[in-house]
Simulated assay, not measured.
Amino acid sequence: MATFLFALFLLFAAINIGYFLAFFKFSASESSEAYATSFPVSVIVCAKNEAENLQNFLPAILEQDYPDFEVIVINDASSDNTLDVIEEFQKIDPRIKIVNVINNEAFWANKKYALTLGIKKAQNEHLIFTDADCAPQSIHWLRHMTSGFTEEKSIVLGYGGYFKYKKSFINKLIRFETLLTAIQYFSYAKMGNPYMGVGRNLAYTSKQFYKQKGFASHLHVRSGDDDLFVNEAATNRNVSICDHTESITRSVPKTSITDWFRQKRRHASVAKFYKNKDKLLLGIFYSARLLFWIFLVMLLSLKYYWPYVIGALGLTLIIEGIVYFQSAKKLDERDIVWLFPILEPFLILSQLGIFIVNTISKPSHWK
């Protein structure tokens, strides 16, 4: 029995190590660079009850050092004064174009419907997406994101992080989870299997959008305007990644574990619509991580092969630590690296809880 448990533990350790060795493809690579691009672009921001965030963060978009861009701001049937705020910005900056969405019965509270109207409003082929609660962390954000476009590359994956709140464990947990997710989707894209992107920092062409018939194939799914679109449209030839520190956007994170848990429930519910190969690869990864820690605790509690168990744990943490450190350096998340042996078990338990709760009930969606 002891030998069998130990063998299973080594198997899950090997799977974890194998995945993180694959992630070296991203973490050890050179960061993307910005090139001199000047073609016109349309920045698209979807806002629902975001009056305060637009006042705080829209100036960071308007201040971008880029020669030719417009900003499409979508008021998605807000009940606050979001529309008033957008109109005030438009008075002082004609680059702002307004799309005012009024709810209708067929597309009630559907962000994909609102985004579709925004895309149709855009005058330019190259589209850059971010959220109303997001702020580019450099005036060169647009230059970096547009550098990802080529004649062949029609989708650009960027990093959308969260603002850092000191002395907040939940903030560090949220940012660690965001870092791990980015390591995965950047690494998979590097290996020729792009499977998702995040709407806080994403770009694609209108030609690609219409080629996929927009969000038609998953319009019935409330979430997934970003990752489901990329999962369907991305190939090993049409995707580039943008991982320079000047290309980062940051948004307002949840401040309570309950709100974050609710948000992650929505995100996790979308994954079941991914391609089968992506669901399989992600399922193996998360299952192996969970089982690794379960068998670790079990073997140490029973004192079975404990010197070898500690050795396997040390090797796993060293390899993971190198990947986390290199990736965090690229994506400006260094302060959370040293806590990863603590944050990882918390994150795994949270993901298990999300899976269980989502199995029992459906999560709520776009505001």
Rank of each mutant, 00 (worst) to 15 (best):
V239P: 10
A288K: 06
F9D: 05
L290W: 12
I61R: 03
F69L: 09
K367F: 04
K91T: 08
D84F: 05
P341E: 05
I139A: 14
G314L: 15
A22C: 13
S187I: 10
L117H: 08
A13R: 05
G321F: 04
V230C: 05
N53P: 00
F285N: 15
P59N: 07
I174E: 13
V156H: 10
G192F: 09
S79V: 12
S168Y: 04
T181A: 15
A106S: 06
V101A: 05
F4D: 05
N49S: 08
Q263N: 12
W293K: 06
D76I: 01
F12E: 03
I183T: 10
H140D: 15
S301K: 10
V71D: 06
Y195V: 01
L8G: 15
A77I: 01
L117E: 15
P194I: 03
R266D: 05
S147P: 03
V357M: 06
F20E: 11
I96E: 05
I257R: 11
R250H: 06
G161V: 03
L10D: 01
L5Q: 10
F346S: 10
T82S: 13
E87W: 00
K303Y: 06
W293T: 02
L11N: 01
A51T: 03
I348V: 14
A132H: 00
T150Y: 10
E151I: 04
H267E: 15
H267N: 08
L115R: 13
S38A: 14
L281P: 00
Y210F: 14
Y35Q: 12
L281W: 04
K172D: 15
S361Y: 08
I294D: 01
F209L: 04
K166C: 01
D68C: 09
Y305N: 14
G314M: 11
Q212C: 12
C46R: 06
